[in-house]
């Protein structure tokens, strides 16, 4: 495998984690367009820990995830009062806030960026990405996930059947933020250079795009979406300047034909030859 493809593969693993971070929050019916910021928090914090304090990378990632999770829970509190498009706008605002914080954060290079991280292999990236994907797939069979789905489908009814919807929504935000931070830590140590522009609005939109394209109702959808988002533009290279336009049209087409994204429950059942549930 050429280094070029290896780096694309690492990129898709990092994107997968970002997509999963959106997916977890989306499962409770909340759209976050600010997960790039949580990724940035993870990237900066883990880099500082490994470079300045010589903390081992795996430990640094865990610490960053916990820190981002706490920040996620704090951000989620005011967000509880907002729904739909208003919540999405608030998360955009949060994202910009964090990005401009890092721009002015001179201790870690400000707009000049931060370097000195040790390079990690594509295998290490996918160890995390694959592990978290499996964890989310197991979570999807749990009681907690059913409660998240209930909040997603009908929040009022969820409360009136005995679910604490506030705890569910805040926990989802915290978990999403933690996963995004892991994504950021891996990004920082794979690219060995980070700057605030890496974690802006476009990054957040990429995460959402991967989820919506791949399938927003099942975790493996994020995997499909991330691989497509990274590799498809490469395969479209022969059409040169038109490849991004072609990619965009493809995206619109998928959304028109399959609103739930490429993968959904019934397609997975078909692919694994299980009995269709009518």
């Amino acid at each position: 495998m050429s280094t070029y493809y290896a780096s694309l593969l690492a990129e898709s693993g990092i994107l997968l984690l970002g997509a999963l971070s959106v997916y977890i929050i989306l499962a409770t019916g909340q759209l976050s367009l600010g997960n790039g910021a949580f990724m940035g928090i993870g990237a900066y914090l883990s880099s500082y820990l490994t470079v300045a304090l010589n903390v081992p990378l795996t430990l640094a990632l865990v610490i960053s995830a916990i820190a981002a999770g706490i920040i996620g829970a704090i951000v989620a509190f005011p967000a509880l009062r907002l729904k739909g498009i208003y919540l999405a706008m608030a998360t955009v605002g949060f994202g910009e806030m964090v990005r401009s914080f890092f721009l002015n954060f001179d201790t870690m290079g400000g707009s000049g960026g931060y370097r000195g991280m040790q390079h990690i292999s594509v295998g290490y990236v996918w160890l995390w990405a694959g592990g978290i994907l499996i964890a989310v797939m197991l979570l999807e069979r749990s009681r907690v996930w059913l409660e998240m789905q209930a909040v997603h489908d009908d929040e009022t009814a969820a409360g009136l059947i005995g679910l604490n919807t506030v705890v569910t929504k805040i926990s989802a935000f915290a978990a999403g933020a933690a996963v995004a931070a892991i994504s950021g830590g891996l990004f920082a140590h794979h690219n060995v250079y980070i700057e605030p522009a890496n974690f802006g609005f476009e990054r957040s939109v990429d995460f959402v795009l991967a989820v919506i394209l791949g399938g927003s109702t099942v975790a493996p959808g994020s995997l499909v979406g991330s691989l497509l988002l990274v590799f498809l533009p490469e395969f479209l290279r022969p059409i040169a300047d038109w490849r991004l336009a072609a990619f965009g049209s493809l995206l619109v087409l998928v959304l028109l034909v399959r609103r739930q994204g490429i993968l959904d429950r019934s397609l997975i059942r078909m692919l694994t030859f299980r009995r269709a549930a009518a």
């Binding site: 789905q149 209930a150 489908d153 009908d154 009022t156 009814a157 009136l160 109702t217």
Partner: peptide, 8 residues
């Protein structure tokens, strides 16, 4: 009736 749309 308020059932959850995504659940069996």
């Amino acid at each position: 009736i308020r059932l959850f749309g995504s659940m069996t």
